[in-house]
Design a protein around this nucleic acid. Sequence first.
DNA 1: TACTTCTCAATTGTCGACAATTAATTTGTC
DNA 2: GACAAATTAATTGTCGACAATTGAGAAGTA
Lengths: 242, 242
Amino acid sequence: MTRLRPIKKRSAEVEAAEALRNHVIGGGVHPGERLTEVRLAEALGLSRTTVRTALHQLANEGLVVQVPYTGWAVTSLTSADAWELYTLRGSMEALAARLLTETLDADKESQLHRSLSDLTSACQKGDEVAVVDRDLALHKLVVALSGHRRLMEQYRLIEQHIRLYLIWSDRLMRSHKDIIDTHRPIVDAIVTGKAKQAESILRDHNESAGRILVEFFNKSDQSPAELPDRPIRRRLSRLRTR
Amino acid sequence: MTRLRPIKKRSAEVEAAEALRNHVIGGGVHPGERLTEVRLAEALGLSRTTVRTALHQLANEGLVVQVPYTGWAVTSLTSADAWELYTLRGSMEALAARLLTETLDADKESQLHRSLSDLTSACQKGDEVAVVDRDLALHKLVVALSGHRRLMEQYRLIEQHIRLYLIWSDRLMRSHKDIIDTHRPIVDAIVTGKAKQAESILRDHNESAGRILVEFFNKSDQSPAELPDRPIRRRLSRLRTR
DNA sequence: TACTTCTCAATTGTCGACAATTAATTTGTC
DNA sequence: GACAAATTAATTGTCGACAATTGAGAAGTA
């Protein structure tokens, strides 16, 4: 017995934005690589106007940057940015955790435990992609369960960036067991209602992960992602500042 | 002897976005009021496509909302939103303050003092508009001086909303002297390098201001801003969720 | 050669027209 | 009159065309 679901009609703009987003975070294009509207429009079978709107959307999310009359390029990863991203999410998740402890109920508690065990099993299987996915999912869950709409909205904006760095973050852990060991205390502190503790654990968790990332990025000197396979034709230095 | 300055050429899209933003935060249109692309395009002397792009930009900033095939409307103020906004900015400004104490120098210190005295003189003059302006400017300065680009970026997104609520927030203070008294400790804590204290003062400052706002909004029951002067023709309930 | 100017191809910026969708209004039916 | 169906007006969604701008390379010049 199947139940009919409303067919969600989504505008081409929204679909295009999603497709492009997945293309970027899925590694279809490399950080720093150039994007042209016409090529994307052809690939997606849409008009340039529609693709353009979608690109503007991604630019707002920070996944691509625009240079007037010159082009679009995928945002590149840097050590400074890693530090900023991790202090920022630390602060946001700390707020979420505090609020969450104040409104915790049985349902939310079980969701947290389920998410943690999902992460655990992914770690035990050694599936790298799944680990990143579940890791992000757990952090997102804390934010979502806080019930703070605006916070979720802001978190959503940096979510894709977090994912990009998280790949390296998780890889830099000594073992997958470490990943479990750093996440269990987070859930524990929240479910036992220790607001202050949950807050500081989340902030510290992120800031130390950030420090490790920064150190790694500085050592490797170059951006860890491969450089664009074809060189950027034009200089993309003068970025639109708005 | 004059020095040549680069002529800043800004695209119509960007100009339109700025004009619309000012129109909204300047009270040219009321919260909840409907906007149509054609009318705006006529008023600005631009094509609908350009205006549309600008509207999408504002939608990302959260100043307007869109209902597919139906229209755009200015976002309205609510008590729940006030609480969210003030907890969020509390968290962000607390982070900024902590970072700022770690990188404070003489120049930054004097900027802080100047900003505080600007606010003070506005309060003494009793100029309501200027007070809101300087109040926001001081908070922005703390974020800017923290040197955290991403944090600034995120703060910029909610800045206009803060301004909208700040008008009421400042009005609800018993006297303008109270405004000075609540801001001086912030600057003091930062310049004396008390990171922890600066952090918690900023968080508490915002959260208590938020509580006052929430209480006021709940009492007045209605949104404090006047209702739209002409009724919204269509129901704007089914908002695009993405 | 070193330098400037001109030319041109590539790309984004802007526009007006038409299609798709929505919701109010009118019409039809009982 | 009450309800349903058809019509219509208003609005956004999408498109292709043309204008503006950029950067690279060719051509000219000392």
